[in-house]
Each structure stands twice: as structure tokens, then as C-alpha cells.
Design a binder for these strands. Sequence first.
DNA 1: TCTCAAATTTAGTTAAGCCTAAAAAAGGAT
DNA 2: ATCCTTTTTTAGGCTTAACTAAATTTGAGA
Lengths: 224, 224
Amino acid sequence: MRDLLTHAVEDYLKTIYDLSLNYGRASTTQIADVLDVAPASVTGMVKKLTGTTPPLVEYQKHRGVVLTPDGEKVALEIIRHHRLLELFLHETLGYSWDEVDAEADLLEHVISDKFEQRIAEVLGNPTHDPHGDPIPTRDLEIPSHATLCLSHLRPDERGSIQRVRDTDPELLRYLSDHGVVPQASFTVTGFTSFDGNLTLLIDGQDKPVVLGTRITQQIFVEKE
Amino acid sequence: MRDLLTHAVEDYLKTIYDLSLNYGRASTTQIADVLDVAPASVTGMVKKLTGTTPPLVEYQKHRGVVLTPDGEKVALEIIRHHRLLELFLHETLGYSWDEVDAEADLLEHVISDKFEQRIAEVLGNPTHDPHGDPIPTRDLEIPSHATLCLSHLRPDERGSIQRVRDTDPELLRYLSDHGVVPQASFTVTGFTSFDGNLTLLIDGQDKPVVLGTRITQQIFVEKE
DNA sequence: TCTCAAATTTAGTTAAGCCTAAAAAAGGAT
DNA sequence: ATCCTTTTTTAGGCTTAACTAAATTTGAGA
């Protein structure tokens, strides 16, 4: 089985995992969009992933895909690699927050168990990456915590940033420049109902930030 | 051009570089042996490498292969990656000497220029890797030094180990266990002319080591 | 319920990089 | 100079993961 875990397969499983978290299942088109391949290619790969022993995904024609427990294990292993790498690049090699994702995407498929273990040790076996996402443990459990979407908060509510689920470097840099980084505490100071914009005042900053609906749905927070 | 630099192509170029250093050129069979592929596959790849713009190798049927300046640049880039990675794995992540080669072989094709630069900085822009091999500089020059083959020394000559050009983990561990590591100083205490065996006494060790011809040709030293 | 656009699958290709088997070239020994 | 072995190349095929184009299915709106 080990030999069918190509980079391509791992990327599909990781993508299906992420989409399933957000939508309960992954559609052909969604997967194709994320991986930047043609929808027909996804159909082909998904069929392959169903036909392996053990099968890595469950799939019904025209109904979308979910991971089997075996597929989820592979996905979590890759996600563990990815998030440890992000943290490692940031902490040990001085990468900035918006540079880590692209490099981790390449390295996550290549590093050995030993490499994974060593960087985890060097970093003190962390439970969360620089975006605030949880890092699966070595036996692939996810340390969860009660978070909700920033878009659910309303004026006068306070919270702290937990995770930013977006990979656009420009956006990440913008957020970072305005103090919207994991662990930062803030107060919601405004809400425009017709367009869904939220205004935040990050503790210690002098100017509030206005964030559109798209991004407020990508930022996860803990209420205070 | 960038897109034809696949892992496979890079491995071929690196192998041709190494073989050319030792033999002046690389034969189809030698390349096939190193890369563990069929000779016919080498012929196919070498043809491809001749047909690129710019060509990466020069090749005449039945006469072997050498790198063009362009091919050499690619090879040196990969070799720089490899040797920096070996050192990084050893120094920063605590890998032992015999573990670094396999992991570096995987990572060398994947890391970005930025990663290369960062680990070089962290390591203090080193000029030699843990095996004692020189690390090409950022502009791909090779810092050379006057070394010769251990097999050329004779009893009573003294020297220090510079490089061990072998990748067999068991052998490397054996050498390491017996003090045959870069920088170690030694005296040649014996030579058996009929089989070419050399006996060494490493400074600070109590027992001499006997090394066969194959390995004495893989160890490079500086005379003292 | 019908219709139609969007989503998905099927069918047929392509490009890499490998393989085996067989043919051909090289080059050392007699 | 010829033979014979080794090396190398040719020819034909396989697999993976992508692609395009065409056919089919789905499901939302009238």
C-alpha cells in the first residue's frame, strides 16, 4: 500500500479532508478547483482511491466523496507534516508567516518519520501551527478547542484569534500588518448588516480593521 | 526550461557529474548501476537531455556522456542542496552521520532557494559537509583543496581524513565506530602489497584499523 | 413537471519515465 | 583478422496522472 501514496494521492486526500471539514463532503469540482486540475482528472483519481485495498475514499457517482478511516489517517499524517513544517520554517528558519505555506506544501510529501519527529522535538511538540491550526499528534488525534467563526461575533463582543484558514499570501500579510494574528485579543467595534463587514479593534493597535464576509468566515476565534 | 528539471533529470545530472569527476565521463551502464534503472532507460533519458534547449549533456553513441556547462550548473545546485542538507540534518536535527544521505537525497530536489539560503546562514555558510566533501558556493564554485586518495599512502606516512566518498550506511557506521571520520589524524602502520590492504592507527585510538582497497580509494586525505 | 444550465462522468489522448527483449556496436584475446 | 563477450541502442509496451471533448446526470427555477 505504501507505494501508492504518491504526492498526487496525498494531495487529493488532504484536499478531501479539508473540504469535508467545511462541507461534510467534497465535490468533484471543489477538489478540481483546489488542486487546479480538470474535473475529469478528479473523477479518475477518486475511482482509483476507491479501488485500493484498503479503500481510501467512499464515493457515489454524482454525490461527492468522503474519506474512509484509512484515508483520513493518511490525510492527518500529511497535515501533521504540513503544520509542523510551517512552524519549523517560521521558528527555526526565520520564514515570515506568509512564506511558510508554499514551502510546506512541497516538503510535506517528502520528509521521513524521523524528520517529522526531530522537528517536533526541536519545537517542543507543539499543538498548534503559526496560523493557529491544531497539529495532529503522532497517533493522529486532533487537539480540538472550542472555536467559532469571526463572522458570528457582533459589536462589543471580545475574543482572541485562534486560526486563519486562508493561504493567500497577500491577504495573510495584510492581516499580519494589522495585528490580526493568532493569540491577538480584540473587540468587535462595528458591523454593517447589508454587506456583512465587521470592524475590529485589536488590543494595542490604534486603528480598527474592516474585514469583509469572505475573510471573517476564514478566521476562527475564541470568545472572551 | 525550469519545468523539465524533474527529480529524475536532476538525479541523472548529479550522477553524471559524480562519475565524470572520477572517470572523466559517464557510461550508460555506470549511470544505470548508480540510479538502479535499466541501461535502456539511461539511453532514453540521455537522448532527452541532449535535445533540450540548452542541451544539458553532450553525448556520442557508445562513447559515454559529459555535462555541458548548463548541465553542470544544475548538478552543482543539487549537490549544494545535498551537502547543506546533510550538514543541517546532522548539526541542527541531530541525525547521525550514516542517516543523513538518504534523507538529503529526497529533500535536495524539493527545497527552495530560500530554504537553501536559510540553512546555509544557520550553519554559518559552511564550505564542507559532514563527509568532508566541499559544498559549492551560491554562485556554484567549488572550494577545492589539495587532497589525495588514502590508497596512495604508505607505512609511516601521516595525514588527516578529509572526505569519505561512499554512501553505504553500514560501512559509514563501521568507519565512524573506528574513528575514521573527517578531521581525524592518523599514521599508516602497515601495507600488504598482495591485496592492497592498508593498516591505520587513528590518533587517540588504541587499536589499528585494516581497510581494503575498495574503501581506501573512497577516502581522501591530506598529508601532514 | 419540464427545461436547461451546471456538475459530473466517459472516452480517447498525451507525456514521462520506466520496463523487457532483441539487435547492433565495441573492443579485448587469440 | 576474427571471434566472442560486454556494452549500448532500438523497438515495442506499460503505468500514472494529467488533458480535451462529448455525453450524461442532477437539481433549481419557471
